[in-house]
Write a protein that binds this DNA or RNA. Structure first.
Length: 883
RNA sequence: GGGCGGUUAGCUCAGUUGGUAGAGUAUCGGUCUUACACACCGACUGUCGGGGGUUCGAGUCCCUCACCGCCCACCA
């Protein structure tokens, strides 16, 4: 017997072990089903599971488990990402505690140290994924630094280089002076901040006056090589070509004109520092200016007094203050005004980015983008569709991708230079000698690749590429990619590009972009805010199924999810409901074997016909919802069916059957058994643990695993909408009695005497056949008779034309009943007014579909009938009061 | 500067071809009815952000305004 309340801990541990050790989710390569595959978006090895991962993985698991139920051959491939900068930072921090820096260890020892760290802590996030019940194939677990993935990286790099799609060059890049590396454009966060705009006067060399420039970065003026104005700016007409004296540095620089300058901003006069601003870099090339570097890779002014004078060696922040001070003193500072602008920051450490000129490697995304753009939507469908536009927008404005990073942890760039002749060798295998001069002292490029470079290969590198493995043949391209929109650019677009380039085929057929999880106030969850809901805590407290079901139920498309603990708690109630419904079933089913089968298309009980009909509808509904990624609809429809129909009505209705013996009981047992089993199957993708446990405890299921069962097949013979509607009428009548009882404050334990006056002979027959169901309203006696006299002291309502009359004895509050009737008639009136208006509108009657007009007329007739009957009842009630 | 999303019951949100506004939660009243108090029975709650338009009919389609949020972008 199951315990009274559902206790997830032991159940989850048991099934996790069962699934892992039994390799339940390792696909059988020779199985006949159509392949269905997903590669997991690899979390960082440094990461701990946050609620966003939990959502991401839950949705994938729902899809995978559902696909298995539909007979597909499913591979869900797990793994982690080496996360270059992030991981290096973590290990460097650990080293710092020992008072060491990475340079103290040297490159090899440091990398060794990172691997040790990975061995010790890198599995943590995988353990957390396991706790959610993710049905991944653990035998195929991958890591972006695995040998075969490294091989894939090299092959791709070399091939792109040969095709001219990777190139090396000196460029101005986003440099993080703290991480000491270049960053890609999209690794820069633009953070709004309040700064200053300083207006500085530059005098003409010939003493003929001056211009005033405006800048937010006065410290860079030491590297100025021009001042630029718009050629059509009348304020500066005819001045281009004159020389200016750069204050402080006292150098001569030219005044140039370029249409790039915005006349509206500041003074319309721009200082040009080609080495320290990406726009100025372009201007510098266009106008053949001097390139003067005054800031070094640490973000300090260069140690060169001829360039920086007394500012040499100062930090850029100190230098800014000091220069402003000097300008103020010598009268060149014309004005200073506060300015809100956005400042580029390192996405990892938030240090302000320094534009920095250096040798870097680039992928020519501008050449690769058009093909990737064309793949959507013909080869790849994006859900929700709105993201398609964002995807296009990014690809249409793409710039080349800086892929070199000046750190140690990552895939080292397979390029060597010859110290003798300067030859650059790019090769899949380590070269032993220079291909040009034979020199054997080749030096490998010290840089490593951007983490996203290896991630971009993930869908095929994890399947064994460049080998033509069976896995690759069977499971590439994958069926769907499930991810958050935050990495649409970092990752999704680049995977598409690499897939097309190296597999000749897109890496996935569909992309499902899910919401971001936010806290109850709508803020992004983050460590610094301390508002994160830790999925591990939630699993501990409420069980994995509760968390999973909550995430699924709230995963409506295109919306952020606001998560709060109360919601998870709410869905724990649901898991308990499932559990207890099962306990009830077990009490009422044979212990040792499945109940005797009956022909479900021929069951007699109206309640059985109703629930079986509803089951068919729900089966179709959930399937359709999941096929179109409407996770919330799938979860909701099962939730409502189980709780509001199966538990609230059906289980109550069959209690009477279970007290009997023989055919009636057997029929109820078999329908109960069938419906419960199929509900468990419907629920299983979202709540794998509780359903697995209940499933295996059902008679006849010993030793079976719900995870390998098929989706319940359709049962067309059980589609009985007419009978279902009849049953619903009975439920409405019962509810009407319950409402009267509640509103007149009659105790539930008090047994009522009820008279039903049916509107037709058919209704009378139906009520008579369903007489037993009225136990649910707790009755003393039930009279079904169209001609029965309504006792004067009675409360009443009308359901589908049938008068429902509850006898009252003297203890009842007559005023309360009168008020209740008034209210009820009021409601009918309100509906009737709207309806009459509609039907008296000729346009409506003429133009609306005939069906609709008919049904509205029927409703009108029904309401009028109800109103008339209720008024009659009210009049008689008033008479009774008078007596 | 471009692009996207949101504004529906006190709160958090559903609402798939336009056709009687829903759920959970909260609140109120009642119940130990032998699966479940993590429960049961019932009640209450809405000019669907404002304005305009299309339509017989709009939460749903179009326009416009307001406020909130996100993404992208080299305005110093």
């Amino acid at each position: 017997m199951l315990s009274k309340a559902y206790e997830p801990q032991e159940v989850e541990a048991h099934w996790r072990k069962h699934w892992e050790e039994g390799k339940t989710f390792t696909p059988d390569m020779s199985a006949p089903g159509d392949p269905y595959s997903i590669v997991i978006p690899p979390p960082n090895v440094t990461g701990i599971l946050h609620i966003g991962h939990a959502l991401n993985q839950t949705l994938q698991d729902v899809l995978c488990r559902h696909a298995r139920q539909k007979g597909k051959n499913v591979l869900w491939l797990p793994g982690t990402d080496h996360a270059g900068i992030a991981t290096q930072n973590v290990v460097e921090r650990a080293l710092a505690k020992e008072g060491k820096r990475r340079h103290d260890l040297g490159r090899e020892a440091f990398i060794e140290r990172v691997w040790e760290w990975k061995k010790q802590y890198g599995g943590q996030i995988l353990e957390q994924i396991k706790s959610l019940g993710a049905s991944v194939d653990w035998t195929r677990e991958a890591f972006t630094m695995d040998d075969n993935l490294a091989r894939a990286v090299r092959k791709v790099f070399v091939q792109l280089y040969k095709d001219g799609l990777i190139y090396k060059g000196k460029y101005i890049v986003n440099w993080c002076p703290r991480c000491h590396t270049a960053l890609a454009d999209d690794e820069v966060d633009h953070i709004d901040s309040k700064g200053m705009l300083w207006h500085i006067r530059y005098d003409f060399a010939d003493g003929s006056g001056s211009v005033t420039i405006a800048t937010t970065r006065p410290e860079t003026m030491l590297g100025d090589s021009a001042v630029c104005v718009h050629p059509e700016d009348e304020r500066y007409a005819g001045l281009a070509g004159k020389k200016l004296i750069l204050p402080i540095a006292n150098r001569e620089i030219p005044l140039i004109a370029d249409r790039y300058v915005d006349r509206e901003f500041g003074t319309g006069c721009l200082k040009v520092t080609p080495c320290h601003d990406p726009n100025d870099w372009n201007l510098g090339h266009a106008h053949n200016l001097e390139f003067i570097q005054v800031i070094d890779d640490n973000g300090n002014m260069v140690q060169d007094e001829t360039l920086c004078g007394k500012y040499a060696g100062m930090s850029r922040e100190e230098c800014r203050k000091a220069i402003v001070e000097e300008l103020r003193e010598n009268g060149h500072l014309v004005a200073e005004e506060p300015l809100s602008h956005s400042v580029g920051c390192c996405y990892r450490c938030k240090t302000v980015i320094e534009p920095y000129v250096s040798d870097q490697w680039f992928v020519a995304l501008s050449k690769l983008a058009p093909r990737a753009r064309a793949a959507v939507p013909s080869d790849i469908k994006i859900y929700p569709e709105n993201w398609t536009k964002t995807y296009y927008n990014w690809l249409d404005n793409i710039r080349d991708w800086c892929i070199s990073r000046q750190i140690w942890w990552g895939h080292r760039i397979p390029a060597w230079t010859c110290p003798d002749c300067g030859e650059l060798i790019v090769s899949e295998t380590d070269p032993t000698a220079c291909t040009k001069c034979g020199c054997t002292n080749l030096e490998q490029d010290p840089d490593v690749l951007d983490t996203w470079f290896s991630s971009a290969l993930w869908p095929f590198s994890t399947m064994g590429w460049p080998e033509q493995t069976d896995t690759l043949k069977k499971f590439y391209p994958t069926s769907v990619l499930v991810t958050g929109f935050d990495i649409l650019f970092f990752w999704v677009a680049r995977m598409i590009i690499m897939g097309q380039q190296f597999m000749g085929e897109v890496p996935f057929k569909e992309v499902y972009i899910h919401a971001l999880v936010r806290d109850a106030q709508g803020r992004k969850m983050s460590k610094s805010l301390g508002n994160g809901i830790d999925p591990q805590d939630m699993v501990q407290k409420y069980g994995a199924d509760s968390l999973r079901f909550t995430l699924t139920a709230f995963a409506a498309m295109g919306r952020d999810i606001r998560m709060s603990e109360e919601r998870i708690e709410g869905y724990r109630h649901f898991m308990n409901k499932v559990w207890n419904a099962a306990r009830f079933a077990l009490m009422n089913l044979p212990e040792d074997a499945a109940p005797k089968a009956v022909d479900l298309g021929a069951v007699k009980g109206l309640h059985h016909q109703w629930i079986l009909n509803r089951l068919e509808e729900v089966k179709a509904e959930e399937d359709a919802a999941l096929e179109s990624y409407r996770f919330n609809d799938a979860a909701q429809c099962v939730y409502k069916f189980l709780w509001n129909e199966f538990c609230d009505w059906y289980l109550e209705l069959i209690k009477a059957d279970m007290r009997e013996e023989g055919e009636r009981k057997e029929e109820a047992q078999y329908v109960l058994y069938t419906v419960l089993k199929e509900i468990l199957l419907l629920l299983h993708p979202m709540a794998p643990f509780v359903t697995a446990e209940v499933w295996s405890s059902l008679p006849g299921n010993e030793g079976t695993d719900i995870a390998t069962e098929l989706y319940p097949a359709e049962r067309p013979e059980c589609r009985k909408p007419l009978e279902a509607d009849q049953m619903m009428f009975l439920q409405e009548a019962i509810s009407a009695i319950r409402t009267i009882r509640a509103e007149l404050n009659i105790k539930p334990s008090y047994k009522l005497t009820v008279v039903l006056r049916p509107a037709s002979d058919e209704q009378a027959a139906l009520l008579e056949s369903g007489r037993g169901f009225f136990d649910l309203a707790r009755l003393e006696s039930l009279t079904i008779d169209a001609n029965a006299h309504a006792p004067k002291a009675s409360a009443s309502n009308v359901v589908r034309g049938c008068e429902v009359i509850v006898l009252l004895d003297g203890a009842v509050d007559f005023q309360a009943e009168l008020a209740r009737l008034d209210k009820e008639i009021g409601k009918v009136d309100k509906d009737l007014v709207a309806l009459n208006g509609k039907l008296s509108n000729e346009n409506f009657v003429m133009r609306a579909p005939a069906e609709l007009v008919e049904s509205e007329k029927a409703r009108q007739a029904d309401l009028m009938d109800k109103k008339a009957k209720m008024q009659a009842l009210q009049i008689r009630f008033k008479e009774a009061m008078g007596e």
